[in-house]
C-alpha cells in the first residue's frame, strides 16, 4: 500500500487548482480589472504631463500589480479551509511542502500571469519608454512569483483566524519592500540608459531561494495555524 508517485500527485494538485481557477474565471478577472482602475486613476490625480508620467510609470505599474496580487492572495487557502480540502491535503501521504508549492504555482499562473500580460498595456497608457519595457516585464516575471511565495507563507499563518485583508497587507509590507526596490530599480535604470540586469539577477537569486524555502515555511505555518 504505497502512496502514489510524486509526479502523479503534483500533476493532480496542479490540474485540480487550475481547473478550479478556470471554473471560477469571473474571479480571475477581478485583480486585472482592479489593476487597470488603479493605474488609470494616477493620470487623473497627477495631470496628463508626459514627462512626469514617464518618470513614474514603472513604479506605478509595479505597485499596482503588487496591490492587485495582495487582493487575490487572501483567497489562496480560503475555500480549501472552508470545505475541508486542506485537512485532506495535510493528511495525505505526500510531502506537504511540495503540494503547497504546486498550489502556489497554480495560484501564480491564475492571478499573476494575467497581470503580467496587461502590464505593458498599463505601462503604455502611462507612456513608459519602450526601451524600459523589457526591464519591466522581466522584473515582473521575477517579482510576482516572489510575492506569491512570500504571500503564501503569510496567508498560511492567518489560516486559523477570522480573516482580515488588512492584517495580511500589514504583514506583507515589510517583506515586499526589497522586492519592490529591486524591481523598480531595474526599470529606473533601464529608463536612464544604465545597465539593469544586476537588480534582476538579485531578484532571480531571491526567487531561487524562496522557491526552496517558502513552501517549507508555508507547510510549517499551516500546521501551526490548523493545530487547534
Amino acid at each position: 500500500m504505497s502512496a502514489p508517485p510524486l509526479p502523479q500527485a503534483c500533476s493532480a494538485m496542479l490540474r485540480r487548482d487550475l481547473t478550479l481557477a478556470w471554473r471560477r474565471r469571473g474571479d480571475l478577472a477581478m485583480p486585472v480589472l482592479y489593476a487597470v482602475i488603479v493605474a488609470v486613476l494616477f493620470p487623473f490625480a497627477l495631470g496628463p504631463d508626459l514627462a512626469l508620467l514617464q518618470r513614474i510609470a514603472g513604479g506605478v505599474v509595479l505597485v499596482t500589480v503588487l496591490l492587485a496580487m495582495l487582493l487575490a492572495l487572501d483567497a489562496m487557502f480560503a475555500s480549501d479551509i472552508e470545505d475541508g480540502s486542506l485537512e485532506q491535503l495535510v493528511l495525505s501521504p505526500q510531502p506537504l511542502a511540495l503540494m503547497l508549492g504546486m498550489k502556489i504555482l497554480a495560484h501564480w499562473l491564475a492571478t499573476a500571469l494575467p497581470l503580467i500580460v496587461i502590464a505593458p498595456l498599463l505601462a503604455g497608457m502611462l507612456h513608459l519608454p519602450p526601451a524600459a519595457m523589457p526591464a519591466l516585464l522581466l522584473a515582473l516575471l521575477f517579482a510576482t512569483p516572489l510575492l506569491s511565495l512570500l504571500g503564501a507563507v503569510l496567508v498560511a499563518l492567518t489560516a486559523g483566524t477570522r480573516r482580515s485583508g488588512m492584517l495580511l497587507a500589514l504583514m506583507l509590507l515589510p517583506l515586499c519592500v526589497p522586492v519592490v526596490i529591486f524591481a523598480a530599480g531595474a526599470v529606473a535604470a533601464a529608463q536612464q540608459g544604465l545597465p539593469w540586469l544586476a537588480p534582476i539577477a538579485w531578484l532571480a537569486a531571491a526567487l531561487i531561494l524562496c522557491v526552496v524555502l517558502a513552501p517549507l515555511a508555508c507547510a510549517a505555518a499551516l500546521r501551526i495555524a490548523l493545530d487547534s
Binding site: A3, P4, A9, T19, E87, Q88, P93
Partner: peptide
C-alpha cells in the same frame, strides 16, 4: 470529518480523481 473535502465546482468524478492522485 464534518467538512467533506469536496470541491463544489468539480464533479464527483473529478473530486475522486484528485483524491486518488494524492492518496492512491
Amino acid at each position: 470529518g464534518h467538512h467533506l473535502g469536496q470541491k463544489l465546482e468539480l464533479s464527483p468524478r473529478e473530486n475522486l480523481a484528485f483524491a486518488a492522485g494524492l492518496h492512491g
